[in-house]
Write a protein that binds this DNA or RNA. Structure first.
Length: 820
RNA sequence: GGGCAAGUGGCGGAACUGGUAGACGCGCUGGAUUUAGGUUCCAGUGGGGCAACCCAUCAGAGUUCGAGUCUCUGCUUGCCCACCA
């Protein structure tokens, strides 16, 4: 028996050699490009097998694509700004920079340990001044275009992290990082005008055929486009008007009250003396509540302001209420309450004894019976003045036109999502390159003074903004007038860095610009992006926004979407449970590399489930792949000398059915790997199953057919075929087969039609759809021949039993169905 | 409450376009090798029946010569959104 396979020695040997020889450098020749990218990791510490699944998938795709003849770009870097580094500083006095660099060093080591094929010459680290200077540069370009602006607005404040959050970072009213209920505060903050791209962000989704539908749907819902009408109600005894937005202007005649958000500025002006105390108390009670309490408070409540509005078409006088269910941030912060045709308004009107006036009739019913529940569908208008009798759709148009003619309304599109709040009151991030001068006001830092460097040795306490307290940093001179000025003390949301990093990889050492547009024209966009579902809205939406902006500036060409195809990998459980430090069940990379080997780990992760599904890491499961690795070694290694003489690019003719079957198994496996790659299905679990069959066939023959050309060919082809999955063992066998160059730079094994062809098929014979016989036959057998053979089968004859055959269904090489 | 996805052996899964359900692996059972354990190798492994056969892809209906796959209803699970006017 061959020596047992020493995976530790082999894996270390090849990782060192690949490193030294730089075989994974991105080629820049005439070959077609392919850009494979896994989402930029945050360097939080140790990697576990969950990370390994993500990087293995990307690596298998990169290696397969490389062997299929593409110029593959497969880079790696570190999303290294962010709160964990600061929290480490607060918790144990660590320097965020040192802490981050140590983590990066460790994670980089572990990523290499997984046998990945990254082009490390393109590595980027977002907390490097040479990276974030381009953050600042991009920020200034957005600023010039009016797409970055500062304004005071009610924002989400996390009291634990002591910073504001983007809307996208508030999950169920809680901070996405620390789960603390988020508060509302009125603060002056920097925003990026992502809403200016709303329609293009929506329309672009339709073009993204390589994206999961779920993800596209979630982005559509997040953007939340709704078409409607904005119009205004007059207020009795004043010149003031209140604007409302509605998608159902056809129900206008059914408005029986007007509801406004407590924060609406009009409230102060219109509230009557008598009602003032009650309204103030109501607004106060809401203000002191966290966002979470307010949204989970399903009970609708409100207070009458004492004021009345006038319906612009019916001229009815309706009361104005302050309510908790109208949101200040959406639409105009006020609505016309139509209880008969809206569930929320119905609910509210019932609780507060407000009238319910039906103005839409269900098609086919003329009679108006008192509504027991709101009728929210379209219908035909009743009791609606000139518009009575119209369909809802027609009335929406007609009423909008009437309001427009009166000068008090217009068609309007509203979006649910808000501009992206990008400033953070934290230290470990990119400084926002703006200076405040008492004479010149808000002044952008000129490009030639970038980067605005984040100062070192800043005390971090977790209270307030660290940079705001740092006199060395804050005090500067105005770039315009040279007078004393103050720097912006806020830093950027870390999602800013990750919104464009994939372009920096294309030209990572460019000192003149973030990237050369000519290089981007070649390498962008990313062809295959791989990452978790948690970034469905945040990172993926922001990146799409940035890319469209870059496209508009001419910095990228072609399509205006950054990621042509997107794949969400599933996560990894440990014995059915979520991996966590507190459970003590985290399966680490170092440990796995030492106990089972990296090749076995990679094979297992690709084999256990399709890559999009949740995988379960178990001892038994991984042992199956350890066995496989050893089986391959035992089958191939002893024959590597003998197999040297075989040309792997020229398949031998089989002499026996066994050899034929073996050659077929070889080519079926190769074809599966190629098909899964080209179809972008990536179900390599089925490929590895076919590799099992290949190795099983080979194992059965290596002892008895040592001299067989087919066996030696199968031995020689195996490292070529498993190279993307088990790169170390493949390389070792390849070397022992007498090759001086890397198997990873070889073309993949081309599936041979002769090997894939079968000489005998199994034809299923059914009677009335039930299987009664299986015939061995040559491919291409005719229906008549099949029928004749079928009638000779006793099982078929017994079923026919003299009955009349009414119909014959013949599927060539598959099945014959006789209907009696 | 709304939306989307999914339910196949003891387990992970295969069957991609309606055409041999359960490939491949894990586990389990028996045997061989071994001082023993482990390793390795061989055989078996959805349920029922002596057998011919019958029953099986969450449940029920439908379409079809034929349904794991298509349609409808219900159940279960997972994820996402939840006062967005």
């Amino acid at each position: 028996m061959a020596d047992t396979y020493d995976f530790r020695a082999v894996e270390r040997k090849w990782q060192e050699r690949w490193e030294a020889s730089g075989i994974y450098a991105t080629p820049d020749d005439g070959r077609e490009k392919y850009y494979v990218l896994e989402m930029l990791p945050y360097p939080s510490g140790d990697l576990h097998v969950g990370h390994a699944k993500n990087y293995t998938l990307g690596d298998v795709i990169a290696r397969m694509t490389r062997m299929l003849g593409y110029a593959v770009l497969h880079p790696m870097g570190w999303d290294s700004f962010g709160l964990p580094a600061e929290n480490a500083a607060i918790a144990r006095g660590a320097d965020p920079n040192v802490w981050t660099r140590e983590n990066i060093a460790n994670m980089q080591r572990q990523v290499r340990l997984m046998g990945t094929s990254y082009d490390w010459s393109r590595e980027i680290t977002t907390c490097d001044p040479e990276y974030y200077r381009w953050n600042q540069w991009i920020f200034l370009r957005l600023y010039e275009q009016g797409l970055a602006y500062k304004r005071e607005a009610p924002v989400n404040w996390c009291p634990h992290d002591q910073t504001v959050l983007a809307n996208e970072q508030v999950i169920d009213g809680r901070c996405w990082r620390c789960d603390t209920p988020v508060e509302r505060r009125n603060l002056s903050q920097w925003f990026l005008k992502i809403t200016a791209y709303a329609d293009r962000l929506l329309a672009g989704l339709d073009e993204l055929e390589g994206w999961p539908d779920r993800t596209k749907t979630m982005q559509r819902n997040w953007i939340g486009r709704s078409e409607g009408t904005q119009y205004s109600f007059g207020i009795e005894n004043t010149e003031e008007r209140i604007s409302v937005f509605t998608t159902r202007v056809d129900t206008l005649f059914g408005a029986t009250y007007l509801a406004v958000a407590p924060e609406h500025p009009i409230v102060e002006q219109i509230v009557t003396k008598k009602q003032a105390a009650g309204v103030r108390e109501f607004a106060q009670s809401l203000r002191s509540k966290s966002e979470l309490e307010r949204t989970s408070l399903m009970e609708k409540a409100g207070v009458f302001t004492g004021a009345y509005a006038i319906n612009p078409l019916s001229h009815e006088r309706i009361p104005i209420w302050v309510t908790n269910y109208v949101l200040a941030e959406y639409g105009t912060g006020a609505i016309g309450g139509v209880p008969a045709h809206d569930e929320r308004d119905f609910d509210f009107a019932r609780k507060n004894g407000l009238p319910i006036a039906q103005v839409i009739a269900k098609p086919g019913s003329d009679i108006t019976v008192p509504l027991t529940e709101p009728y929210v569908e379209d219908g035909r208008l009743i009791a609606s003045g000139d518009f009575t009798g119209m369909s809802s759709a027609r009335a929406r148009k007609a009423i909008t036109e009437r309001l427009a003619a009166m000068g008090i309304g217009e068609a309007r599109i509203n979006y649910r999502f808000r501009d992206w709040l990008v400033s953070r009151q934290r230290y470990w991030g990119t400084p926002i390159p703006i200076v405040y001068c008492s004479a010149c006001g808000e002044v952008p830092v000129p490009d030639d003074r970038l980067p605005v460097v984040l100062p070192a040795d800043v005390p971090i306490t977790g209270e307030g903004s660290p940079l705001a307290r740092d006199e060395r940093f804050i005090n500067t001179n105005c770039p315009k007038c040279g007078g004393p000025a103050k720097r912006e003390s806020d830093t950027m949301d870390t999602f800013f860095e990750s919104s464009w990093y994939y372009l920096r990889y294309i030209d990572p050492r460019n000192a003149e610009q973030p990237w050369d547009p000519r290089k981007a024209a070649k390498w962008a966009p990313v062809d295959q992006y791989i990452g978790g579902t948690e970034h469905t809205v945040l990172h993926l939406l922001y990146s799409r926004f940035f890319y469209k902006f870059f496209h508009d500036r001419g910095w990228v060409s072609g399509a205006d979407e950054p990621f042509t195809r997107l794949f969400h990998q599933g996560f990894v459980l440990s014995n059915g449970e979520k991996m966590s430090k507190s459970r003590g069940n985290v399966v680490g990379i170092d440990q796995t590399a030492d106990t089972t080997g990296v090749d076995a780990m990679r094979l297992f992760l690709m084999y256990v489930t399709p890559p999009e599904d949740t995988a379960d890491w178990t001892e038994e499961g991984i042992s199956g792949r350890v066995r496989f690795v050893n089986r391959v070694w035992r089958a191939c290694e002893p024959l590597t000398q003998a197999a040297r003489s075989v040309d792997v690019r020229s398949m031998p003719e089989p002499d026996t059915p066994e050899e034929k079957a073996l050659l077929r198994a070889v080519h079926v496996a190769a074809k599966s790997a190629i098909d899964e790659t080209r179809s972008r299905r990536f179900h390599y679990n089925t490929t590895i199953a076919k590799l099992d069959e290949y190795v099983n066939a080979l194992t059965g023959m290596v002892q008895t057919h040592r001299e067989s050309r087919a066996v030696l060919y199968a031995v020689h082809a195996l490292p070529l075929i498993i190279a993307p999955f088990a790169p170390h063992m493949a390389e070792e066998l390849w070397e022992r087969l007498g090759h001086a160059t890397s198997v990873h730079l070889e073309p993949y094994l081309e599936p041979d039609e002769r090997a894939l062809a079968v000489e005998e098929i199994t034809l299923v014979v059914q009677v009335n759809g039930k299987i009664r016989a299986r015939l061995q036959a040559s491919p291409g057998i005719t229906e008549d021949d099949a029928f004749r053979l079928a009638l000779e089968q006793s099982g078929v004859r017994a079923q026919l039993d003299g009955k009349e055959i009414r119909k014959r269904i013949f599927v060539p090489d598959k099945l014959l169905n006789l209907v009696v």
